[in-house]
């Protein structure tokens, strides 16, 4: 069956602010007819070219490879040249609000100052550190299995959609953030790289590092290139243990505590986990929660902890697979 091109009428509200002339930002409303072919960038271009030439936004390649045009539509981080308007209408209806990735960092309209993003990106040394001969006589061989480890971490286009959607960044300006973690992983998993340990030390610091990720999965959700940063963060957790970089602190002990619990019982012992990661004082602090959980049947008393039937086998598996040193 042949179909014709469908169109819909929408209202677009665009965040406007020119630091040279405006005291406060405001929203400007535009009414447009959009087709099933249109992506968000087409909407921005049409507003700029047909309604208001001063509308400012970054754009360049128009096919999802330069990472310039990320914005938020109804608070969802999107790459403007990739996100179809019809899909957004399905999600949000026929009124779309287009905002910059971060309103506090606006230079003009949808253009933001990404300095914080780039500073953190630089902090993980986002390049291959290796003694490469300037004029090598043969290739540096990398096997397909080794390439497989880098996985999709190499597809990042630095658009910043994940970084400016990350709830940890909002409350913790020190946090390195999902994009730079994915980039760090791209090199810590590259067998040609010589700065693996240095990078793992950078990303495992308390406060700024991978342990402060709250695992909300927003970065995986918004990424227009399916880099899946949270998956890379988890792999970095593992690498810090594998490479002996992980130091004993509340975050790493929380991770290792799971292992101990499984090793001892085959089940999760939440009381034991708290004790292992936070110590006796932490245990005391959590007593009110523990009481509540017990009342609601969420945790058993220590003497009633169930044991897994195949505990001996579980212990063997834990022993051969664990890389934790504490």
């Amino acid at each position: 069956m042949e179909k014709s091109i469908q169109t819909k009428n929408i209202t677009v509200k665009v965040f406007r602010f020119n630091g040279d002339t405006d005291v406060l930002p405001y929203y400007k409303e535009y009414k447009l007819e959009v087709s099933q072919e249109d992506v968000v960038l087409d909407v921005l271009n049409r507003i700029k070219w047909e309604h208001s030439g001063s509308l400012s936004y970054r754009r360049s390649c128009r096919h999802g490879i330069c990472g310039s045009c990320a914005v938020k539509v109804n608070n969802k981080g999107v790459l403007a040249c990739k996100e179809r308007v019809f899909d957004l209408i399905d999600l949000f209806g026929d009124e779309l609000v287009i905002d910059p990735l971060n309103k506090q960092r606006v230079i003009k309209d949808l253009v933001i100052d990404k300095k914080d993003f780039w500073d953190k990106y630089d902090a993980v040394q986002p390049y291959l550190v290796a003694d490469v001969e300037e004029e090598p006589e043969k290739e540096n061989l990398v096997t397909p299995d080794e390439v497989e480890k880098i996985a999709d971490a190499d597809y990042c286009i630095q658009c910043g959609a994940c970084y400016y959607s990350c709830p940890v960044i909002e409350v913790n300006p020190e946090f390195i953030g999902p994009a730079a973690f994915a980039k760090a992983y791209r090199f810590t998993s590259d067998n040609r790289d010589d700065a693996k340990i240095e990078r793992l030390e950078t990303v495992s610091q308390m406060g700024s590092g991978v342990w402060d990720c709250v695992k909300c999965f927003e970065c995986a959700q918004v990424c227009p290139k399916d880099v899946n940063p949270i998956d890379k963060i988890t792999r970095l957790h593992q690498q810090t243990f594998q490479e002996g970089v992980a130091e004993s602190n509340v975050a790493t002990r929380h991770a290792v505590g799971f292992k101990h619990s499984i090793e001892q019982h085959g089940f999760l012992d939440e009381g034991g986990l708290v004790f292992y990661s936070e110590g006796p004082l932490g245990m005391v602090q959590h007593i009110p929660e523990a009481v509540n959980m017990f009342k609601n049947g969420k945790i058993p008393m220590p003497w009633n902890l169930p044991k897994s039937k195949n505990l001996e086998e579980i212990k063997k598996i834990v022993k051969i697979s664990s890389t934790a040193k504490f």
Binding site: N18, G19, D20, T21, K48, G53, S56, I107, K108, V111
Partner: peptide, 12 residues
Amino acid sequence: RIEDKSRLFNTE
């Protein structure tokens, strides 16, 4: 004629 007369990120 262009609308944007500013010297700040003037893509127009």
